[in-house]
Amino acid sequence: MTIDILFIWTAFKEIIKALPITLILTILPLLAGFIIGLAVALIRIYKVKFLCRVANGYVSFFRGTPIIMHIMLIYFGFPLLIDQISTKFDLGIQSNSIPIILFVLTALSLSAGAYLSEIFRSGIISVSNGQMEAAYSVGMNSFQAMTRIVLPQAIAQSIPNFTNIFIGFLHTSSIAFIVSQKEMTGAANIVASTNLKFLESFIAAGLIYWGLTIIAEGLSFLIEKKATAYNRGGVQ
């Protein structure tokens, strides 16, 4: 077994065609997770009755089990559920007509929500309480103070954490290949097994992921510099 360096380039060109699916599997769950995470974080911070317990359980369970479990549970569980509801109410929806990618997206969104909620929570808590009081003193109500004063600062401070989550989910999207999604790892696997050149294909896939990660880190650095510009000067 020798390494065919030229094949890495062939595999690279083949695998990069699957980049859009990987990006869809990364970005859409993070956008959905952003909304879920914000809602869950606010519920936990304001200790909303009953909902707070549900939110705690949700975050604890999703952070306590591997993401592949979420994908598998939803991949096998939702079709059963949908078929049962469909036959009960005569909706005429069949689970096997739903594309698998929707199940994967749902699972990843729920996981992203749990992970992001912790980041929002720590970000919001880290904004000093005086900011909230100052907002009240100029006549803002709670909602205005939250959306105009606290959240922008909380989000700006959490940018490094968001980047980590983005990179984490970029890498997590590779798990989707186990439920036969043709994203980058899936594509690498197909290229590998049709040409029987496993090592070369996975080197190519690794290089693409590595490049994407470096780009994401660079972008995050630029965005962070811009977003926390208000926080410069003085002793910092």
Binding site: T185, F198, F202
Partner: peptide
């Protein structure tokens, strides 16, 4: 830090 653990697993396994 730049590659998924799944890819690392395959790289070690075949590499």
């Amino acid at each position: 830090r730049g590659t998924p653990i799944l890819i690392q697993l395959f790289l070690v396994f075949y590499g």
